[in-house]
Amino acid sequence: MENDFSKIQQKSYLRCSTIWGEDVEGYFYAIDEENNQIILENESISFSSSSPILEALYKPAKLGEHSLRFLSCSAIKGFMVLRSSSEIETKERLRFERELPYVYDAPDDEALKRKEKTAIQTIRERQNHIKPGISEEIQSLFNHFCNMYPDCHWEGDSMIIMGIRIEPPYQPESCKGEPEVTLERIRKNLKQKLRLPS
């Protein structure tokens, strides 16, 4: 059964569950009938995923940031209106109007296409962060570094983080490289992530 978004009020707050096990919450922005997708305005706290692969593809926004999220209707298993537009309290509505004033304007098709193109390009670039055949724990560890440092990639089975090589079994003593200050920072971060004693 196909989801029917046609009767949803703009600015209603939805939770959509996808076929990939992801829950996305956000304010209903628009329906893109031509591409069979909906557009949600969501915040950093509204992303929930049980998959390290999805975490690798979608870098979470920083606290307080908002982003447009394009969801294919065919990828949505189900949705729930958490609060209709009319149910949103006055305080939240005022915050919404102040932070997202453009939501009341008619959707700008060209701006949406540019945003979609940028989002697709970002996802394609982040696909390189996924290492086939690696355990979920190791992929999660790599995702953690990707969200902290701009220069991260795989080289064989080794993680390269800011020029520092982390080889299997991905322990602090497996880290090699220079400069020493970066090496120590990454070792310390790895210890914290693995919850090892200092």
Rank of each mutant, 00 (worst) to 15 (best):
S158K: 06
D109N: 14
T90K: 11
R165T: 15
D108Q: 10
G133D: 07
Y104T: 14
R15S: 15
D23H: 11
I161P: 04
P52T: 05
D23T: 11
K91Y: 10
S12F: 03
I138Q: 04
A106Y: 15
K117S: 12
R15P: 13
L196F: 08
S74W: 02
W154K: 04
E34R: 08
K117L: 09
E125C: 15
S44L: 05
I138V: 09
G21Y: 02
H144K: 05
P107L: 00
F96R: 15
L63K: 00
P107A: 03
K188T: 12
G163D: 11
I45G: 10
F28P: 01
P60D: 00
M80S: 07
P169T: 01
S85E: 09
I45P: 04
R93S: 08
I45N: 03
C152R: 00
V103S: 15
M80Y: 09
N42M: 13
G133P: 05
S46E: 08
R69N: 03
S17V: 12
K59R: 13
N189C: 06
S49M: 08
E87A: 03
S49C: 13
G64I: 02
E41K: 07
G177H: 03
P179I: 04
G177D: 04
D109R: 15
I166V: 10
Y13T: 14
H66A: 01
Q139M: 01
D109E: 12
E110Y: 11
D151I: 15
I38G: 02
R95Y: 09
E65V: 01
Q37A: 10
E99M: 07
Y27W: 13
N189P: 01
I138W: 06
K193T: 04
L68G: 00
E41W: 06
L94N: 15
S135L: 01
N147Y: 07
I164S: 09
D32P: 00
